[in-house]
């Protein structure tokens, strides 16, 4: 039975990768890691991540499972929070779809079912 690696990525680490955030995340996911982001992705970032993911899909890497809890962009409020160095409440979980059997979401929880290889 293979190990499953779950990497928790802090807001600080993501800030260091602000210029190559999606590449950084996809690199980890394609390395067969499940990543949990302290700073949740917004809808636009999720959209861009799906778009980037599709460029790498082949017989070995079949895509991702993703779920975000909270993290809605609240307009000027979230901009102000960002300016003050704070983070939006919530988290994002992303992993390779060959590893994650199912990710179910309700408004208050993410249920992740993974399989080892």
């Amino acid at each position: 039975m293979a190990d499953i690696c779950i990497e928790f990525i802090s807001t600080k680490t993501l800030a260091r990768h602000s210029g190559d955030k999606l590449d950084y995340l996809l690199g980890n996911i394609r390395d067969n890691k499940i990543v949990v982001l302290e700073d949740p992705l917004n809808s636009n970032e999720e959209k861009e991540l799906i778009k980037e993911t599709m460029k790498y899909v082949d017989s070995k890497f079949t895509g991702i499972e993703i779920s975000t809890l909270g993290g809605e962009d609240n307009g000027r409020g979230s901009v102000l929070i960002g300016m003050l160095g704070g983070k939006r409440a919530g988290l994002t979980v992303i992993g390779p779809s060959r590893l994650i059997r199912q990710m179910k979401k309700d408004p208050n929880a993410i249920h992740l079912f993974a399989r080892s290889r």
Binding site: I50, T53, M54, V57, S59, T62, G63, I64, E65, I66, S97, R98
Partner: peptide, 8 residues
Amino acid sequence: GIATKVDY
């Protein structure tokens, strides 16, 4: 259709 994964 938009999906996050495509497995042949």
